[in-house]
Every structure is written in C-alpha cells, then in structure tokens.
C-alpha cells in the first residue's frame, strides 16, 4: 500500500471523501473545459472527451479516498494530469497508434494500481455488475446512505419507512449484494 501523505485538513480532500456534490461539481466543470480543449487539439471529439474524463474523475476520486493523492498540488491539476494520461493511453490504443507523437507519451502521474490494473478493473466491474443486478429498492437505499451520505433518519423519511426498518433493509441489501457478487465471481 502507498504511503499516507495526505493533508488531513485540506477542505477539498475532505469534500471528495464525503462525496460533496458542490465541491466535486466545481472541480469537474473547471477541469473539463481545459481537458476538452486538449482533446480537441489532439484529434478527439466531445463524446471521447467526456468518457475519458469521467473515467479519470473516478480514478482521481478513488485515489483521494485511498489517501494516494499527496496533496502537493491542487486536485484540479491532479485530475487534469490523470485525464491527459488516459487520453494518451487512448491515443496509443491500436486505432490511434499512428497519430501520436513522442511528446504524447510522457507519463507524470502513474495511476495507482496500474501494475495490477487488469485484475483490479475486473473486480471493480464485477462489483458494479452485481450492483446493477440488485433490485431498484436496494440500489436506491444503499445509494442514499453510502453515496449521498444521508443519515438513517433522512433515508427513512425519503423512503417513507421507519428508521429501524431502513437499517434492517440496508443490512440485508448488502448481504444480498455480496452474494450476487460472489455468484458473478464464480460463474463469470
């Protein structure tokens, strides 16, 4: 595991860790327009820019959560570097191989986990697929609780059920999700 270098009191880092919508939206908007320009100048289009950027945003967000962002620069700069590297990888993929120049190959920030990249990615995809197979009610409840970070009381209110029942459901939904993921891991 990487070294823990994160500055605990960086408000942006805390905001990302808490999935704070406003803060993340600001970083997204600010960085995307810059990245989009880069992609447009490098034989890309809007749809590609969006896809690659969103993958980069997820990678950046995960690294922050795992304390792999060292906090030396801004999150915007970090995100931009990840996105640009991903774009370079995209250009190096067979479809684009002929068009990329040597300056396009520099790699400043190595995305963590790249060495185990393929395996990690498969596992992540499996988890996401399992989540997709979970019933809508469970998906909604878990999303409200774990992503939106609502309190049990708020979740219960949103769903029109008692707090104790929401807590029980959350527990069972996670168990259910785990068994779906297990099945997918075993049976592909």
């Amino acid at each position: 595991m990487g070294k823990t270098l994160q500055k605990i009191d960086d408000p942006q880092v805390t905001a990302f860790k808490n999935n704070d919508r406003q803060a993340m939206q600001k970083v997204y908007e600010h960085t995307y327009s810059k990245f989009r320009n880069h992609v447009f100048k490098n034989s890309g289009n809007e749809a590609e820019a969006k896809d690659i950027f969103q993958d980069a945003f997820v990678a950046c967000w995960r690294n922050i959560k795992d304390d792999k962002f060292d906090g030396t620069g801004s999150i915007e700069a970090y995100l931009y570097t990840i996105a640009r590297n991903k774009w370079t990888d995209h250009l190096r993929s067979p479809r684009f191989r002929k068009t990329v120049g040597p300056e396009g190959l520099s790699k400043v920030v190595q995305e963590e986990g790249d060495d185990l990249g393929a395996d990690l990615d498969t596992k992540r995809q499996t988890m996401l697929r399992a989540l997709n197979q979970l019933g809508d009610a469970c998906q909604q409840l878990l999303g409200l609780f774990y992503y939106e970070r609502k309190t049990m009381k708020q979740v219960a209110k949103d769903l029109g059920i008692a707090a104790a029942s929401a807590r029980n459901k959350k527990y069972r939904c996670m168990e259910r999700l785990r068994s779906l993921a297990e099945d997918l891991t075993k049976n592909g």
Binding site: R21, K65, K123, R124, L128, G143, Y146, Y147, E148
Partner: peptide
C-alpha cells in the same frame, strides 16, 4: 469495501 466503493462509484457516475 469493494462493494461499498461500487455503490459510491455508481452514485458518482450518476452525479457526473
């Protein structure tokens, strides 16, 4: 943790 992160990632992708 892996499942927790998947739930969060799905939420984040929606928000994005």
């Amino acid at each position: 943790k892996a499942l927790f992160r998947a739930i969060e990632e799905a939420g984040l992708r929606h928000a994005m």
